[in-house]
């Protein structure tokens, strides 16, 4: 019995994932994705999406006229992405391998709720390589869970989040972790933050950073 239940719980499916994220962010993540596609992506741009998941953002970006390359490590997710965003290209690759994609190649690197899946070392490496991959003045667009900056908000966020996260986990077996010290990490990798907006009591942030490295 216990086995059976645990087995079911840990099964990951793309639909479950999308549903989980929607609940966890009160639907906010969908709004942010639309904002990214309409505000931060221009037609004709080359975009790399790290951790494309089910391809919902890739679909929005291709509709906007961008050329999108999405990477993910889950074959299930990639299959879902290919059917959701037929005009984008998707390959199986870990975030830490993106150096294989070349240099000076992308106008935008986009990651939604995927950087927080990385370990700290992985994140630093990915940020460093991103600045090489991006063209000069290219932008990194990240939407992820962050710890709120004020202490009372942190407490409040914990209180609200805990039951919500448990519920979401029970329903969909998905959860997220907060990205720590993202601003320092992003700047250390050679970016300048040009836009920073928080949602949901400061727990979900959209960060846009410009590449300042001359590669």
């Amino acid at each position: 019995m216990s086995t059976l239940v645990y087995m079911r719980m840990l099964e990951q499916t793309p639909t479950k994932y999308d549903r989980g994220m929607r609940i966890l962010t009160f639907g906010c993540i969908d709004r942010i994705k639309r904002e990214i596609a309409s505000t931060w992506i221009e037609p004709g741009q080359d975009v790399l999406e790290i951790g494309c998941g089910t391809g919902s953002l890739a679909a929005l970006m291709t509709r906007r006229g961008a050329r999108v390359l999405g990477i993910d490590i889950s074959e299930n997710m990639l299959a879902a992405a290919r059917s959701n965003a037929p005009d984008a290209e998707f390959i199986h690759m870990t975030a830490t391998e993106i150096n294989k994609l070349g240099e000076d190649r992308f106008d935008r690197i986009v990651a939604t709720l995927s950087f927080s899946e990385l370990s700290e070392d992985e994140l630093d490496l990915v940020l460093r390589v991103s600045s090489v991959l991006l063209k000069r003045r290219g932008k990194l667009v990240v939407a992820d869970e962050v710890p709120p900056s004020r202490w009372w908000r942190r407490v409040l966020a914990r209180l609200v989040r805990w039951p919500l996260a448990s519920l979401t986990f029970l329903l969909t077996q998905n959860t997220t972790r907060a990205l720590k010290m993202y601003d320092i990490r992003v700047e250390r990798a050679g970016f300048r933050i040009v836009h920073h907006k928080v949602h949901l009591l400061g727990t979900l942030a959209l960060i846009v950073a410009e590449n300042t490295n001359d590669s």
Binding site: M7, L10, E11, E75, I91, H92, M93, K100
Partner: peptide, 20 residues
């Protein structure tokens, strides 16, 4: 909880052809 062999079979092909 793995759907191990079936899944890994597919993954293996994908990995071999991984990247470009």
């Amino acid at each position: 909880t793995v759907i191990n062999s079936v899944k890994s079979h597919k993954r293996k092909d994908a990995e071999r052809n991984g990247g470009e």
